[in-house]
Nucleic acid binder design. Structure first.
Length: 581
RNA sequence: GCACCCAUAGCUCAGCUGGAUAGAGCGCUGCCCUCCGAAGGCAGAGGCCUCAGGUUCGAAUCCUGAUGGGUGCGCCA
């Protein structure tokens, strides 16, 4: 299915034969032998570095190895040229039929084209968003939400068994603050004038919660002390906020498989169990932490508390799991939560954090490493900050000034598809300036539009063909004589299509969905280019009046491109457009 | 003070885990609609990949150290 792995296999087989024949010495390690598309198409279709990698261990000249390998590879029908170049590269030229075959495969596989089993059904847990249940999602959360979701889809595409998970921080002091803020709105709903002291949330989105509380409880808590209503209001508030958050996620078509409650870890022995597990490995001890350097802690005094020896697993300092008064730190339930993930049997864990949580990476990795004895890898992807721009000016976020830019604001402004694509057209660890005006522009400057346009063009062409009485269904196109696609421009597009399975694999291996977005842009560019060549040469026109068989072949090519664009956009969570409006 | 991330064209960014002459969009200079959507295409100019060392056949990519920017850093959440 993946042409590159096929050729890689061919190269390795040929090398093995050369060893058997005594041309190459025994015991060579072929692990570093790579087969890649050369950067410059003039160098051929594929290139291998085998000769250079093996030259030293084999104690031979690279060019001698390359020459021997070239002779072997030329025996394969697919290889029509093998040239030694530069320091010892071996450039392979493949028969056009190779690319034409791939198009046939793409049409036959449809939406499945590019899927693979490299994930081997391994269970991966992708935790993302995990915003505190104290309000709607804002721009900062949006990037992590989109990134995590696309990554999950990507991993699913290459054969992992993926669980999308959200950790609800409903156990700490911030939900008490929420409860108090809800109470103030509740009083307000009863006609009182309220003020929001420091340490409460004055936000408008709690007004309806206040109303709902009034609806539910009437005035029974109006003059009551905090103990009377805190627990109830907290529960109610969290539920309301999670509803809000779920709605926000739905705006971006994100649906979680599992919501995990921090609260469920308390009073159930889960935290104790997790720490016992660490203790059993000798990683829990009583001790005193060094004061933090740099900042001048005015109220610092050394106190003995329970610590996790995270330095044994790569952290810079050991971390407290229990405060000196015996209460759990924030880290303790986090350990328990990840212990739970390990116990649920996941083969790999991925967490998506905002840049502001960069400081927790080491300790979380240390915890998972310790809990799973290094068996379960935890990859943490940090999403850097998003700055919003409109009319060339930056939108500053400030809760106090009330300029709180929500996820909903962004989606309202540019739509879910644009939001998703734009945020994914960037490496996660790169900061992002999101220009809302540009995102709405319908031009080449806007990658979403450009890719969508390519797909719409294909469908427009297919519609046009249908109007002319030409059959464009998949069966007809699959039966087309693809050998007619022999022009370099057509083969070039086919090459790009053939690259898709490889690109998804790379993207999945590196946990980098942005690679998919960039690939789609390139593919769209190929398509636009070929389309315009049709203006000058008739046989490159998708609909060719003088030859029905050429038309079918061209439309097969176009449809194969569409198949890949649809699949790629599917991974990114963007709906492929069949026409532009 | 410490940790993590980033530094590539005037601007915004890619660069397939070490490969050949470092790519794309915008902007700039030109060209291309009697034609399946010009909402596009083609071409040109533009680079000491921040700097200095190191590793090797080979470095934008890996290591060390600077410099500049970002994000964090107690028993907070």
């Amino acid at each position: 299915m993946n042409l590159f792995t096929d050729i890689h296999t061919l190269v390795i087989d040929s090398l093995t034969t050369l060893v058997a024949e005594g041309v190459l010495p025994e015991g060579l390690d072929f692990a570093n032998v790579a087969v890649e598309p050369p950067r410059d198409a003039a160098h051929g279709d594929m290139a291998t570095n085998a000769a250079m990698v093996l030259a030293k261990p084999a104690k031979m000249k690279p060019r001698d190895i390359a020459t021997a390998l070239a002779a072997k590879l030329s025996d394969d029908a697919r290889v029509i040229g093998a040239e030694v170049a530069g320091p010892g590269f071996l450039n392979l030229r493949l028969d056009n039929s190779v690319w034409q075959d791939v198009l046939g495969q793409a049409l036959a596989a449809g939406a499945k084209f590019g899927r693979s089993d490299v994930g081997a059904g391994k269970r991966v847990n992708v935790e993302y968003v995990s915003a505190n249940p104290t309000g709607p999602l804002h721009v900062g959360h949006t990037r992590g939400a989109v990134f995590g979701d696309a990554l999950a889809s990507l991993l699913d595409f290459v054969g992992y068994d993926v669980t999308r998970e959200y950790y609800i921080n409903d156990g700490g002091a911030q939900v008490d603050v929420l409860a108090r803020s809800c109470y103030l709105r509740y009083l307000e709903a009863h006609g009182q004038t309220v003020e929001f002291p420091d340490g409460t949330y004055p936000a408008d989105y709690l007004k309806p919660v206040g109303e709902a509380l009034k609806e539910k409880y009437g005035d029974q808590f109006v003059d009551q002390p905090e103990e009377a209503w805190l627990a109830e209001f907290r529960l109610f508030g969290i539920e309301a906020m999670m509803d809000l958050i779920r709605e926000d996620l739905a705006l971006l078509n994100i649906e979680m498989d599992h919501f995990f409650s921090e609260k469920s870890l308390y009073g159930t022995g889960k935290i104790e169990d997790a720490l016992k597990r660490l203790d059993g490995k000798g990683l829990i001890y009583r001790g005193v932490l060094e004061p933090p350097k740099g900042k001048k802690p005015d109220d610092w005094e050394p106190r003995e508390q329970t610590l996790f020896k995270s330095t044994d697993h790569g952290d810079d300092v050991d971390r407290a799991v229990q405060k000196s008064d015996g209460a759990w730190t924030y880290f303790a339930p986090d350990i328990a939560y990840h212990n739970d993930k390990v116990e649920r049997g996941f083969d790999a864990l991925i967490n998506i954090f905002g840049a502001d949580h960069g400081g927790y990476v080491k300790r979380m990795k240390a915890a998972v490493s310790a809990l799973s004895d290094g068996e379960v890898p935890l990859d943490i992807k940090l999403c850097q900050l998003v700055k919003l721009f409109k009319n060339g000016e930056e939108f500053k976020m400030s809760k106090r000034a009330g300029t709180f830019v929500t996820l909903r604001d962004v989606v309202d402004a540019v739509g879910a598809d644009v939001t998703r694509f734009m945020l994914l057209t960037r490496k996660n660890d790169q900061g992002f300036d999101f220009d809302l005006d540009k995102a709405l522009e319908q031009s080449k400057d806007n990658p979403v539009f450009y890719v969508q346009y390519a797909n719409a063009r294909i469908h427009s062409t297919l519609r046009k063909a249908t109007e002319q009485g030409i059959a464009v269904d998949v069966d007809t196109l699959s039966a087309a004589d693809l050998t007619l696609l022999s022009d370099e421009a057509q083969i070039s597009v086919a090459r790009k299509v053939a690259e898709w399975p490889r690109q998804v694999e790379i993207a999945a291996r590196t946990n980098e969905p942005h690679r998919v977005a960039f690939f789609l842009y390139d593919l769209a560019s190929e398509l636009h280019g070929l389309y315009h060549l049709g203006k000058s040469s008739e046989n490159l026109r998708f609909v060719n009046e003088s030859s029905q068989s050429a038309t079918h072949a061209n439309l097969a090519l176009a449809r194969a491109v569409s198949v890949v664009i649809s699949a790629g956009l599917g991974i990114l969570g963007v709906k492929p457009a069949e026409e532009m409006r």
